[in-house]
Lab assay of single mutants.
Amino acid sequence: KELVLVLYDYQEKSPREVTVKKGDILTLLNSTNKDWWKVEVDDSQGFIPAAYLKKL
């Protein structure tokens, strides 16, 4: 599985998104959309702007 590093805090703005903190390491589930990547946070899944993430 691929991991990503969160570069900036992000507060979810819709139920399909997730809240993350700078420095979090998350599992990347889908990066086919260049603007929004799907990640797994704890036991939930959701989208975060790709610009907030860096592949490890």
Rank of each mutant, 00 (worst) to 15 (best):
K1R: 14
K22D: 02
T27K: 13
S14V: 06
G23N: 05
P49S: 03
S44F: 14
V18K: 07
V6T: 02
L29Q: 03
P15W: 07
S14F: 09
A50K: 06
K54R: 11
W36C: 09
K55I: 13
K38Q: 14
I25T: 05
A50P: 11
G46N: 05
E2T: 13
Y10H: 03
F47M: 08
I25R: 04
E12I: 15
L5Q: 08
K21D: 03
N33V: 05
V39P: 00
K1Y: 12
N33C: 12
K38S: 08
V41M: 10
K55E: 06
Y10W: 08
D42K: 14
Y52R: 05
K54T: 11
V6K: 00
W37R: 00
N33F: 07
P15G: 11
L26C: 12
K21W: 07
K13T: 12
W36K: 03
V18M: 13
V18I: 14
W37S: 01
I25Q: 03
E12R: 15
D24Y: 07
S14L: 08
T19H: 07
K21I: 06
I48K: 01
L26G: 08
K54Y: 09
V4L: 03
P49Q: 03
Y8R: 14
L26I: 12
L56Y: 07
K21G: 04
I48M: 13
L29V: 11
T19G: 05
S31W: 09
T19W: 05
V6D: 00
L56F: 08
Y8C: 15
K55Q: 08
D35I: 14
S14I: 06
D42I: 09
K38P: 01
L53W: 01
P49D: 05
V39H: 01
L7S: 02
K22Q: 11
Q45S: 13
P15M: 08
L7W: 03
G46D: 03
P49A: 04
L5V: 11
L26V: 11
Y10R: 02
D24F: 07
E2G: 11
V4T: 02
E2I: 13
D9W: 04
K38L: 15
Y8A: 13
A50D: 04
K55Y: 09
L28F: 02
V41E: 02
Y8D: 09
Y52P: 01
N30A: 09
V4D: 00
D9E: 04
N30F: 06
V20T: 04
A50V: 07
L29E: 02
L3P: 03
K55R: 12
K38D: 03
L53T: 04
T19P: 03
P49K: 05
K55P: 09
G46E: 10
E2F: 10
F47G: 02
L7M: 08
T32N: 12
E2Y: 10
D9Y: 03
S14C: 11
Q45I: 14
Y10G: 01
E12D: 07
K54L: 11
W36I: 05
S44H: 15
A51W: 13
L3V: 07
D42H: 13
K13L: 10
V6F: 01
K34P: 14
V41F: 12
E40P: 00
V39Q: 00
A51N: 13
I48W: 02
K54D: 08
K22R: 11
E40N: 06
T27C: 10
L56C: 11
T27S: 08
L28H: 01
L5P: 00
L7P: 00
L56S: 02
D35R: 13
K13D: 07
V4S: 01
V6N: 00
V18C: 09
L56P: 00
A50G: 05
L29F: 03
P49Y: 05
N33I: 05
D35H: 15
Y52Q: 05
E12S: 15
E40W: 08
F47C: 13
K13P: 05
L53M: 04
Q11Y: 15
V39K: 00
K1Q: 11
W37P: 00
K34S: 12
E40K: 11
D35T: 13
K21Y: 09
T27Q: 09
T32R: 10
T27Y: 10
G46H: 15
E12H: 14
Y52M: 10
N30W: 06
N33E: 10
S31H: 09
V39E: 00
L26H: 06
V20G: 03
E17T: 11
V41G: 08
L28E: 00
K38R: 10
V20L: 05
K34N: 11
W37C: 03
Q45H: 11
V39T: 01
Y10P: 01
D42G: 15
W36T: 03
L7C: 07
L5C: 09
V39L: 03
V6L: 02
A50T: 05
G23M: 03
L3M: 12
L26F: 03
R16G: 15
Y52I: 15
